[in-house]
């Protein structure tokens, strides 16, 4: 636990000392303003948007999961570029355990800010327990996001490209809302599809247990595969 706190504290020091990463920490504030001020204003000005508000809430909420994914991806890529990752390879700690530990803090923060946005958004009344459950599952998107970018990228330049690709993969299943019913299952291989569908049902106060279970299983599978790959490549 002491090691986790020390590493997390160091990670945050580095994030705060890097102007290009520090700015991303203000993203939740911007998203809070968008969902609480900009979107309600748009609804009033353009009533036609009313029927799309559920999609806006879903998209904005999922955006929250990408913020810490991006920040931590860059932290890990820098660590690899500067070869500091090799030092962890000779430390008395299990690589897999260390990798999972490292993902814990960004996942917890993501769960909290996702929960907060679901609580403060002004359009839907959601039970606190259900929104917390969804936020915890949504936060499981952080580890595979971070690890996928870190595994694929040799340097920050490549990292930025992979961030774009992963962001696309995260948001793409939103298209399932706009395609004929029979085609929406095509997006099912992507865990975010189940998060989108689950949140949609949650906002409508319908049962979302099935979507949460599938999302958890898929995210767990992706995380397991990526942790293995990461622990082989990152520390050597």
């Amino acid at each position: 636990m002491k090691q986790l706190l020390t590493v997390s504290l160091s990670d945050f020091k580095m994030i705060f000392r890097d102007p290009s990463l520090r700015i991303f920490l203000f993203l939740p504030v911007m998203i809070f303003l968008v969902i609480n001020v900009a979107v309600p204003w748009l609804m009033r000005e353009f009533p036609v948007l009313e029927e799309y508000k559920i999609y806006l809430v879903v998209l904005v909420t999922i955006q929250m999961t990408q913020m810490f994914g991006f920040i931590y991806s860059i932290v890990l890529i820098e660590e690899k570029e500067q070869e500091v990752s090799k030092v962890y390879g000779v430390m008395p700690i299990s690589r897999i355990q260390f990798t999972l530990f490292r993902m814990l803090i960004p996942a917890i923060i993501t769960a909290l800010i996702t929960w907060l946005i679901l609580i403060v958004q002004p359009f839907y009344s959601i039970p606190l327990g259900s929104s917390l459950l969804f936020s915890m599952v949504a936060a499981l998107m952080v580890p595979p996001y971070v690890l996928a970018v870190a595994v694929m990228s040799k340097n920050k330049m490549e990292g930025m490209v992979w961030v774009k690709v992963i962001n696309l993969a995260v948001v793409l299943p939103a298209a399932a809302f706009f395609v004929p019913k029979g085609f929406s299952w095509l997006f099912g291989i992507l865990p975010t599809h189940w998060a989108f569908q689950g949140l949609y049902k949650l906002l409508l106060n319908e049962s979302f247990a099935f979507e949460m279970v599938v999302a958890t299983v898929l995210l767990g599978l992706f995380t397991t595969l990526l942790v293995r790959r990461f622990s082989k490549t990152h520390f050597a």
Binding site: R17, E79, V84, V87
Partner: peptide
């Protein structure tokens, strides 16, 4: 002791 310096530059 690694061949090349490897430290967190911002720390």
């Amino acid at each position: 002791g690694f061949e090349l310096p490897n430290h967190y530059l911002k720390l």
